[in-house]
């Protein structure tokens, strides 16, 4: 098959839209995840979201709905600042991750429906994405992007120094909540389509690329988004062409691209200095 032929297939176009939207969403929030040093929270939330899908399927109700509800609940709990002296937030997040992962494996194993459909919460099923999924993804992407356009500076300020922001007339907890809300929504919506690995990978790798190349936060955001678009596009083509599992192929492609960027940067840096 030639590239053009691949791209003419309906399911490829859907998968492409899906992965582009997930990429954009997760790479924007990934920059916040890294700045706020909550990478571990990102993977725990993805896993909770997977558990939500598993519960929905097991109970025979909409997995998107259960996933959304459970994810938002988790995000809300993680957003609330814990009082010092009790158990640390990090350990609660770790606990949540383990329990969510274990439970979802059990629920999927004991669900004949999921098994017959070959459902895979870890690597997702990007190629089975439905039109409805794309619409929901698009709506969430637009909402998250609009929040960024309007409140980007305040989001960054309250992430950096919530105490001063609050003193200087900015409702820290409100803006911080909006960031967590965006994160929860994005992860929940993306998870059902892309799988845990894809969502978590796209929270981390594109943002890392942004931080590697750029020095200013708006450019880092832009760099992360462009990186995610490029890796989705080419990763998907490779996956269809060679019939490799989609999400893992896209992620591997992204990983390779990032390593190449690191190498190029260090080589050119070394040349520059000599």
């Amino acid at each position: 098959m030639s590239l053009i032929e691949i791209l003419k297939e309906d399911f490829v176009q859907y998968a492409l839209f899906g992965s582009l939207l997930i990429g954009v969403l997760c790479s924007i929030l990934g920059v916040y995840v890294i700045l706020k040093r909550i990478v571990f929270l990102g993977i725990a939330v993805s896993e909770v979201s997977a558990l939500g899908v598993a519960i929905g399927l097991f109970m025979g109700i909409s997995p998107s709905l259960t996933s959304l509800l459970l994810t938002m609940l988790a995000v809300l709990v993680f957003w609330i600042p814990v009082k010092e002296g009790s158990i640390s937030k990090e350990s609660i997040i770790g606990f949540t991750y383990v329990v969510a992962a274990a439970l979802s494996v059990i629920l999927i194993a004991k669900n004949p429906l999921a098994e017959s459909r070959g459902l895979d919460l870890v690597s997702g099923n990007l190629l089975y994405i439905q039109k409805g999924d794309i619409v929901v993804l698009a709506v969430v992407t637009v909402a998250v992007a609009l929040l960024q356009v309007f409140f980007f500076k305040k989001f960054i300020f309250v992430s950096f120094d919530p105490e001063t922001a609050n003193t200087m007339g900015i409702r820290s907890s409100l803006y911080d909540f909006l960031v967590y809300l965006s994160l929860g929504l994005s992860v929940a919506i993306s998870m059902k389509v892309g799988g845990v690995l894809f969502v978590f990978g796209f929270l981390v790798v594109p943002a890392l690329f942004g931080f590697l190349i750029f020095r200013r936060i708006p450019l880092i955001l832009l760099g992360a988004v462009v990186f995610s678009v490029v890796s989705s596009f080419f990763g998907l083509l490779v996956s269809v062409r060679f019939d490799w599992p989609t999400s893992p192929t896209i992620l591997t492609f992204a990983g390779a691209l990032f390593v190449a960027a690191v190498l190029i940067k260090s080589v050119s840096g070394a040349l520059w200095h000599d």
């Binding site: 309007f150 305040k154 200087m168 007339g169």
Partner: peptide
């Protein structure tokens, strides 16, 4: 500039 963020205009 953060000292001015309480009076940012549209689009920050």
């Amino acid at each position: 500039e953060m000292g001015r963020y309480d009076r940012l205009g549209l689009f920050g």
